[in-house]
Computed example of a mutant assay.
Amino acid sequence: MTDTVTLALTAGEPAGIGPELCLQLAAEERSAGLVVIASKPLLEERNRDLGLGIVLEDWAPGSVAARAPGTLSVLHVEGLATTAAGQLNTANSAYVLDTLSVATRGCLNGLFDGMVTAPVHKGVINNAGIEFSGHTEFLQAMCGVERVVMMLATDELRVALVTTHLPLSEVPAAITPARLTQVARILNQDLKTYFGLEQPRILVAGLNPHAGEGGHLGREELDVIEPTLEALRQEGMTLTGPLPADTLFTPHWLDNADAALAMYHDQGLPVLKFQGFGRAVNITLGLPIVRTSVDHGTALDLAGTGRADMGSLRQAVQVGERMALCQKRMGGQKLASGNKASNV
């Protein structure tokens, strides 16, 4: 068993801060090998403009990825059109998706132990006529899995979501026994596989205020959530809830838990981002590969200035490395094949 990993790092939207964050990160000491998946001329230009002095080395399969401070391995991707920091160009959309495809295939083929993604700009990709709802859905399709789970994490808190980018009016109907069961199983399994937790302790939020208050403020807890959680406990999971979300995120509960499972996006993530914005990591669970990302966007106004904070990218790399190492120590265990999409 090796105690080192190699991570693919996609540089994201070329007009945003992703390319320079990759370069700034390369100036630091690191234990993981990084291979930036991007246009090499773009990195050379941003490197020169910011006076960073990073040595860019071409990487090919079988090569050892650079780890020394001041060096960066690059897997060049063609297709970048003319670009300038802070100025979006729809002509670059296919190139951005190609970087994601190269990194994902590399992980699936064993070239990389995981992938870390810098931010992309969903709007400009869609404006190019390419339907794109985000990294998560793109990777889900490429990996051929039926369900993925979004989890954001800091060193102190992990919050996973049953539903993600849905209008609030559509959330109750989306919380079905089947969906809740699948999400909870993925969360429980991946906390074992990637975080080394033998028996994960998961807090589960209710949907309604006061977790429905015995049915007086909604019946989803009584009709869906409680019966589903009880069935999952019979499988051996350690699940507490449904709990009122306004008190779940307090030391009384969190001090004895490994993760919280929120029913919808803005139920759990505001708490986590208040607690650790800029050092939080977006993790996609349910994939057969390790994937982490930053908790921020492309920050076009900061692109090319050298003032962007790389704290979240640094954390994403560190968490991705720890997840990949843990998976290796677990013997390369992957998610059960029951999460494979039926049409793949």
Rank of each mutant, 00 (worst) to 15 (best):
Q318K: 13
I125G: 12
T298F: 05
L42E: 06
L9I: 00
L80M: 15
I175L: 04
E220W: 03
E170S: 15
E170T: 11
I202T: 07
V294D: 10
P244D: 05
G129S: 06
G196S: 11
E170L: 14
R105Y: 09
W59E: 00
L207T: 03
A178P: 02
H296D: 09
P177C: 10
L88N: 01
R307E: 10
L152R: 11
G286N: 15
R67N: 07
V64S: 07
M151K: 05
T82S: 11
V145S: 07
G304N: 14
Q24T: 03
F274C: 07
D301G: 09
I37K: 03
L191I: 09
W253G: 09
S101C: 07
M323H: 08
G16Y: 11
S101F: 00
N256V: 12
P177I: 10
A324N: 11
T240K: 11
G297V: 00
R291S: 05
N47R: 04
V319Q: 05
V96E: 14
L56F: 06
D58C: 05
G16K: 12
V96Q: 14
V36T: 06
N343S: 12
A103T: 02
Q189G: 06
R67C: 10
L287I: 07
T4A: 15
D98P: 07
E78S: 10
Q182R: 14
N208H: 01
P69F: 04
V102M: 08
P200C: 05
G196I: 09
P41K: 12
D295Y: 07
K340L: 02
R322V: 13
S133M: 09
M323Q: 05
E57F: 06
V36D: 02
W59Q: 01
E78H: 11
N89F: 08
V271C: 03
E57V: 15
T83I: 03
G311C: 04
G304R: 11
F274Y: 12
L25W: 02
H265Q: 02
S342D: 10
K122S: 05
N343C: 13
G79M: 08
E20H: 09
L157Q: 07
I283Q: 00
G278E: 04
E57N: 14
L191S: 09
G286W: 15
A245C: 04
L111H: 03
L269N: 08
P244T: 00
S101L: 04
A68N: 12
K334H: 14
N109E: 12
V149Q: 09
E198S: 11
I54G: 03
M142H: 01
G297Y: 01
V171N: 04
T164Q: 06
T154K: 13
K40R: 14
N339A: 01
